[in-house]
Amino acid sequence: MPTPSRYWREIPQRYRMEAGKCKACGFVAFPPRVVCPACGAREFVPAKLADGGKILTYTIIRVPPRPFEDQAPYAVGIAELDDGVKLTAQVVDCDFADLKVGLRVRLEFRKLSEEGEAGIIYYGYKFVPE
Protein backbone atom coordinates (compact mmCIF):
# COMPACT_ATOMS: atom_id res chain seq x y z
CA MET A 1 0.00 0.00 0.00
CA PRO A 2 1.39 3.40 -0.92
CA THR A 3 1.76 5.95 1.84
CA PRO A 4 -0.85 8.71 1.58
CA SER A 5 1.86 11.25 0.76
CA ARG A 6 1.58 10.45 -2.92
CA TYR A 7 -2.10 11.35 -2.96
CA TRP A 8 -1.74 14.27 -0.62
CA ARG A 9 0.80 16.15 -2.69
CA GLU A 10 -1.51 16.21 -5.72
CA ILE A 11 -4.45 17.66 -3.76
CA PRO A 12 -4.18 21.17 -5.24
CA GLN A 13 -4.55 19.64 -8.69
CA ARG A 14 -7.12 16.99 -7.88
CA TYR A 15 -9.39 19.19 -5.76
CA ARG A 16 -8.88 22.66 -7.15
CA MET A 17 -7.45 22.22 -10.65
CA GLU A 18 -4.41 24.33 -9.83
CA ALA A 19 -2.08 24.76 -12.77
CA GLY A 20 1.01 26.82 -13.50
CA LYS A 21 1.09 29.48 -16.17
CA CYS A 22 4.46 30.20 -17.75
CA LYS A 23 5.44 33.81 -17.14
CA ALA A 24 7.36 33.93 -20.40
CA CYS A 25 5.04 32.35 -22.95
CA GLY A 26 1.70 31.83 -21.21
CA PHE A 27 1.73 28.04 -21.54
CA VAL A 28 -0.56 26.50 -18.92
CA ALA A 29 1.00 23.41 -17.35
CA PHE A 30 -1.34 20.98 -15.61
CA PRO A 31 -0.03 19.63 -13.35
CA PRO A 32 2.42 22.48 -12.65
CA ARG A 33 5.99 21.88 -13.79
CA VAL A 34 9.47 23.13 -13.09
CA VAL A 35 10.36 23.75 -16.73
CA CYS A 36 7.96 25.09 -19.35
CA PRO A 37 7.70 22.44 -22.07
CA ALA A 38 6.83 25.11 -24.60
CA CYS A 39 9.65 27.63 -24.08
CA GLY A 40 11.97 26.27 -21.40
CA ALA A 41 11.35 29.11 -18.97
CA ARG A 42 11.22 28.30 -15.28
CA GLU A 43 8.95 30.90 -13.78
CA PHE A 44 5.28 30.18 -13.40
CA VAL A 45 2.35 31.93 -11.80
CA PRO A 46 -0.50 29.92 -10.26
CA ALA A 47 -3.51 29.45 -12.49
CA LYS A 48 -6.80 27.63 -12.16
CA LEU A 49 -8.15 25.54 -15.00
CA ALA A 50 -11.50 26.34 -16.57
CA ASP A 51 -14.24 24.15 -15.15
CA GLY A 52 -15.86 23.32 -18.47
CA GLY A 53 -14.92 22.20 -21.93
CA LYS A 54 -15.72 19.85 -24.75
CA ILE A 55 -14.90 16.22 -25.36
CA LEU A 56 -12.17 15.60 -27.94
CA THR A 57 -12.20 11.83 -27.70
CA TYR A 58 -13.52 9.15 -25.39
CA THR A 59 -13.80 5.44 -24.75
CA ILE A 60 -15.66 3.07 -22.50
CA ILE A 61 -13.39 0.93 -20.34
CA ARG A 62 -14.83 -2.56 -20.10
CA VAL A 63 -11.70 -4.35 -18.89
CA PRO A 64 -10.52 -2.32 -15.92
CA PRO A 65 -7.28 -2.35 -13.99
CA ARG A 66 -7.29 -2.66 -10.24
CA PRO A 67 -8.71 -0.92 -8.24
CA PHE A 68 -11.45 -0.05 -10.74
CA GLU A 69 -12.89 -3.58 -11.05
CA ASP A 70 -16.29 -2.73 -9.60
CA GLN A 71 -16.68 0.41 -11.65
CA ALA A 72 -16.54 -1.07 -15.15
CA PRO A 73 -17.90 -0.30 -17.61
CA TYR A 74 -17.02 3.37 -17.27
CA ALA A 75 -16.37 6.13 -19.76
CA VAL A 76 -13.15 8.10 -19.97
CA GLY A 77 -12.48 11.07 -22.17
CA ILE A 78 -10.04 13.80 -23.05
CA ALA A 79 -11.64 17.21 -23.05
CA GLU A 80 -10.32 20.52 -24.24
CA LEU A 81 -11.20 22.94 -21.47
CA ASP A 82 -12.37 26.43 -22.27
CA ASP A 83 -8.86 27.74 -21.55
CA GLY A 84 -7.38 25.38 -24.13
CA VAL A 85 -5.85 22.89 -21.69
CA LYS A 86 -6.48 19.24 -22.53
CA LEU A 87 -7.46 17.05 -19.60
CA THR A 88 -8.15 13.33 -19.11
CA ALA A 89 -10.91 12.17 -16.77
CA GLN A 90 -13.85 9.84 -16.45
CA VAL A 91 -17.12 10.93 -17.98
CA VAL A 92 -19.96 10.16 -15.57
CA ASP A 93 -23.69 10.80 -15.32
CA CYS A 94 -23.72 10.28 -19.07
CA ASP A 95 -25.47 7.52 -20.97
CA PHE A 96 -22.90 5.81 -23.16
CA ALA A 97 -25.07 6.48 -26.20
CA ASP A 98 -24.76 10.22 -25.57
CA LEU A 99 -20.95 10.23 -25.64
CA LYS A 100 -19.66 12.07 -28.66
CA VAL A 101 -16.84 14.27 -29.84
CA GLY A 102 -17.82 17.84 -29.04
CA LEU A 103 -19.98 16.98 -26.03
CA ARG A 104 -19.98 19.88 -23.54
CA VAL A 105 -18.84 18.81 -20.11
CA ARG A 106 -18.06 20.43 -16.78
CA LEU A 107 -15.86 19.18 -13.97
CA GLU A 108 -17.39 17.68 -10.87
CA PHE A 109 -15.78 16.47 -7.63
CA ARG A 110 -16.09 12.71 -7.26
CA LYS A 111 -14.55 9.67 -5.67
CA LEU A 112 -12.01 8.05 -8.04
CA SER A 113 -11.13 4.90 -6.17
CA GLU A 114 -10.17 3.76 -2.73
CA GLU A 115 -7.42 1.79 -1.08
CA GLY A 116 -9.63 -1.14 -0.14
CA GLU A 117 -12.31 -0.96 2.53
CA ALA A 118 -9.97 0.37 5.18
CA GLY A 119 -7.53 2.55 3.24
CA ILE A 120 -7.77 6.12 2.09
CA ILE A 121 -10.34 7.37 -0.39
CA TYR A 122 -9.02 8.93 -3.56
CA TYR A 123 -11.00 11.99 -4.65
CA GLY A 124 -10.68 14.08 -7.76
CA TYR A 125 -12.44 15.48 -10.80
CA LYS A 126 -14.62 13.83 -13.39
CA PHE A 127 -16.47 15.17 -16.39
CA VAL A 128 -20.25 15.35 -16.36
CA PRO A 129 -22.36 16.53 -19.31
CA GLU A 130 -23.35 20.19 -18.96
Partner: peptide, 16 residues
Protein backbone atom coordinates in the same frame (compact mmCIF):
# COMPACT_ATOMS: atom_id res chain seq x y z
CA UNK B 1 -25.75 7.95 -4.81
CA UNK B 2 -23.53 6.56 -7.54
CA UNK B 3 -20.58 4.56 -6.24
CA UNK B 4 -18.40 7.63 -6.82
CA UNK B 5 -20.58 9.95 -4.77
CA UNK B 6 -20.49 10.29 -1.01
CA UNK B 7 -21.15 12.90 1.64
CA UNK B 8 -17.91 14.66 0.80
CA UNK B 9 -18.37 14.86 -2.97
CA UNK B 10 -21.94 16.07 -2.62
CA UNK B 11 -20.91 18.59 0.04
CA UNK B 12 -18.22 19.94 -2.29
CA UNK B 13 -20.58 20.35 -5.24
CA UNK B 14 -23.36 21.86 -3.12
CA UNK B 15 -20.84 24.26 -1.59
CA UNK B 16 -19.52 25.32 -5.01
Amino acid sequence: PSPDQDTITMAVEGSK
